[in-house]
Design a protein around this nucleic acid. Structure first.
Lengths: 341, 341
DNA sequence: TATGCATATGATTGCGCTGTCATGTTGTGT
DNA sequence: ACACAACATGACAGCGCAATCATATGCATA
């Protein structure tokens, strides 16, 4: 049937264990032998059997990505792609596990999958990475995990994030620098750690500039188009008293705000500036395209994979060295203009 | 450490093999014994080890999803979610493998992953499912595969699709029934089998209604927003001679057409009707929302998984019974109106 | 030359499960 | 009552690999 390590060993004139050593990059193999083995592997087209590897060894070469995102938004997609790419590099594989935070049974299914597959590690995406009950259970079984943008309990475990608060601060400052003094804000899902951070960054910037923020200028939202539309219609509804700029907590809701403006006949960016967050693909293609904050989602997921496969992390999961804060970037596009006089 | 089948067997007072029988739903286990075993499994929290199962048995309980879609569009996301859901039901797991059709090395990586993981089956998504070289290689190793919307070589292997041509035909008829007689068309990526089928359905309907289609009314595209924008601008550029409706080959390009109309000051749907295809999430939320064809992507992927785990398919991959044509649905929304007089 | 240590390799065992086959233990028809 | 099936269970081997330990080589130092 299929080529096994034994076949390679025989063909190369060494023991299976030596082939195994070459495969796993262990020390104590003469370069000349190593070369012969590698050549034989290639010639025979040998591919190690993961099941046997994981049964005999300690690792499964499988990393989990747990996501609670029923629509599989661009955010989840960006992370997934980055994670897969890095897994390939490292000869690992990614198993995607969707979880519904609102369903206890769903968490059960995740734990079952983890045990089934003997995952080597798991990447937790908002809002899962802020669920204490889930974190507790994962810690209880000793599974290495990395949180993506948890926004809280930074000391608890490894994490990968950007400085959301600073990014929101910078973006708000940009609007202020263009003369905007009355800026509305559309929030995200409250359970996402990013939501309070982005709001805080926004408020920091406004306060630092000495600009007041009426409570009615802060509208709820849930990171999707509709909430942007609704929040936008409320913020822009009163022609006598409307903000000249709106900060939406992500790009989808920013598109909703633009749609609301368009319905009300308010030209963007001439009469209203709109900014989003995340740099979703759609933010680049809609018209006007949206000024936003680019999160390096692929890099973040890649960093998470790297942490999980790092034996040093597996040895000491409390190690503070595994807290990655990646750079963000403000992307200037067409949805922002100077404050209308 | 972890509970094994042996522990369960001892606790239940039976042999490991009997537990294995219960696990795999084999015949010849007394109901009373089965009950005791199941109770013990539950009590001990036993989770079978996939690696051991796959090493000892013939199945890996892993299904692959191969996708060539660098942006991981809504199409890929919809399929993925449906596949994962069905996998869970069946106690399988999904491993996502992105492939770049333009990179030979990428196909190599896919084949390596297949061998590594001993996949039980693989789902091929356009345009991969029309790559003869890839299909040949997969057949050569005897791996069961299902093609999603291949649009050609229907007899070659199992497939899951909708009747793209009929759907495009129906959608075009809808426009014609509203009085439109001059309809433009934006194509998709030529390598995707859906592209010629949707075009053919469109042309069929036009011809059947006795309506001419000038060559300039057919614009190229690649399923994304930009190509819709460009094609739209060309189709609508001449105010003296412009179609009253445009059929875009998917929702992204339909949004591009709407954006083009908006730039040119052409109100949709008053002066121009636009239809898309796929019923992407965005089609529902933009304004105006887009009349389109809903493909049951989740069901399609689910059906693909069901075929792959079906032992009858594994036994006879030529069986014509495994060709699934799922129903589509035309979704009427705000982007279509009667032909302006 | 003898001693030690770093380097290099192989023999053996077992991971947890399923496949095969042997062995019981009931039921059914005559 | 007997043969013979259908049913029910267990003993045992082995999947392909890595971990462990034992065993060989070199090569410098005393």
């Amino acid at each position: 049937m299929n080529v096994t390590i034994k076949d390679v060993a025989e063909a190369a004139g060494v023991s299976p264990k030596t082939v195994s050593r070459v495969l796993n990059g262990e020390a104590y193999v003469r370069p000349s032998v190593k070369e012969v083995v590698l050549e034989t592997i290639n010639r025979l087209g040998y591919k190690p059997n993961m099941a046997a590897r994981s049964l005999a060894g300690a690792r499964s070469y499988l990393i989990g990505l747990a996501v609670d995102d029923p629509t599989w938004s661009a955010y989840a997609a960006g992370l997934q792609l980055g994670a897969i790419k890095k897994c390939r590099e490292r000869n690992y594989h990614l198993v995607v596990e969707p979880v519904d935070t609102n369903q206890a049974e769903s968490e059960e299914a995740l734990m079952r999958a983890i045990a089934h597959l003997r995952l080597d590690g798991i990447i937790l995406v908002p809002p899962l990475c802020t669920s204490d009950s889930l974190l507790d259970r994962i810690e209880a079984i000793g599974l290495p995990y990395v949180r993506v943008a948890p926004g809280q309990q930074p000391e608890r475990s490894a994490l990968v994030e950007i400085d959301e608060r600073q990014a929101a601060f910078d973006l708000t400052c940009h609007l202020i620098s263009l003369g905007h003094r009355d800026i509305g804000f559309i929030q995200g899902i409250e359970q996402h750690a990013a939501t309070p951070l982005r709001r805080a960054g926004f408020l920091d910037a406004m306060h630092q500039a000495g600009l007041p923020v009426k409570p009615s200028r802060i509208q709820p939202g849930d990171f999707n188009f509709h909430s942007g539309l609704e929040g936008g219609e409320i913020l822009l509804g009163d022609a006598q008293d409307r903000p000249t700029a709106i900060f939406a907590s992500n790009d989808d809701s920013a598109m909703g705000v633009i749609a609301a403006a368009s319905r009300l006949g308010i030209p963007v960016p001439q009469a209203l500036s709109v900014v989003g967050f995340d740099d979703a693909p759609a933010a680049r293609i809609v018209w006007p395209d949206i000024t936003t904050v680019r999160q390096p989602l692929g890099d973040m997921a890649g960093a998470a994979v790297e942490i999980l496969v790092d034996p040093r992390y597996r040895a000491n999961m409390q190690d503070v060295a595994f807290r990655r804060v990646l750079p963000y970037e403000i992307i200037h596009r067409g949805s922002v203009g100077p404050c209308p006089t």
